[in-house]
Simulated assay, not measured.
Amino acid sequence: MRIISGKYRGKKLITPRGLETRPTLDRIRESIFNIISQRIANARVLDLFAGTGALGLEALSRNAGFATFVDNSREACTVINKNIALLQFEHCTTVIQHDLTRAGTLARIRPKKFDLVFMDPPYRKGLIDAVLENSEFIDLLADNALVVCEHGAQENPGINISKLDITDQRKYGKTQITFLTLNNAELIL
């Protein structure tokens, strides 16, 4: 696993041992970042179910302004912190170890408004819906925020939140990427 583009292009990232963390494939990550390239500069990024932190770190390498990483695994948070130190992003990052499905987790996340949110939870566990249905989630989004959800191509997350619209979906083999914005938000992809 490596940073694909930007200031730290080609830099290898540390990954946790075992199969518990399933990092986004480089080619999928590259496709996502090609699609959202107009939204990255100075963005406040929230990387949920962060794993290695690859999505948020890629955004920082491409000039995002700040990133908050959230994962419930202690080992994943340790790896994220090591990757942050490797890329010298300590000044513009926060790492939170917490279970996103538990009440009150989203209220703890600061800063409060994010421009870009990545969600890459374990597949087939309903975790995207659990976060999106949490009333605190919408409060984390800036007016023109983009939410990028990675899930199994066979999954069809409910994503029936009245304040969010699906603006695009892309399929990459067994993986699907769903892009969401607030209703009536200016669409910039």
Rank of each mutant, 00 (worst) to 15 (best):
R2W: 01
I3W: 00
I3S: 00
I3N: 01
I4D: 05
I4Y: 04
I4P: 06
G6V: 00
K7T: 05
Y8N: 10
R9G: 08
G10I: 07
K11I: 00
K12R: 13
R17S: 14
G18F: 05
P23A: 02
T24Q: 02
L25R: 10
D26G: 13
I28Q: 14
E30Y: 12
I36K: 11
I40P: 06
I40V: 15
I40A: 07
A41T: 11
V45W: 06
L46V: 10
L46Q: 10
A54C: 01
L55Q: 01
G56A: 13
S61Q: 03
R62G: 01
N63V: 02
A64T: 03
F66P: 07
A67C: 15
A67W: 04
T68L: 06
F69E: 01
S73K: 06
R74H: 11
R74C: 06
A76F: 01
C77V: 03
I80G: 02
N81R: 14
I84C: 01
I84G: 01
L86M: 00
Q88N: 06
F89L: 03
H91I: 02
C92N: 06
C92Y: 01
Q97E: 14
H98S: 15
H98P: 02
R102Y: 05
T105F: 04
L106P: 04
R110V: 08
F114N: 13
F114E: 11
D115K: 08
M119T: 05
M119Q: 05
P122R: 13
L127M: 15
A130I: 09
V131R: 08
V131G: 11
V131H: 09
L132D: 02
N134H: 09
S135N: 12
E136A: 15
F137A: 13
D139W: 01
L141W: 10
A142K: 09
D143M: 09
V147F: 11
V148N: 10
E150F: 06
G152E: 14
N156V: 07
N160E: 07
I161V: 12
L164R: 12
T167K: 15
Q169M: 14
G173F: 07
K174E: 12
I177N: 09
T178D: 10
T181I: 12
A185H: 03
A185C: 03
A185D: 04
A185G: 03
A185Q: 04
E186P: 03
L187R: 12
L187A: 08
L187H: 12
L187I: 14
L187G: 03
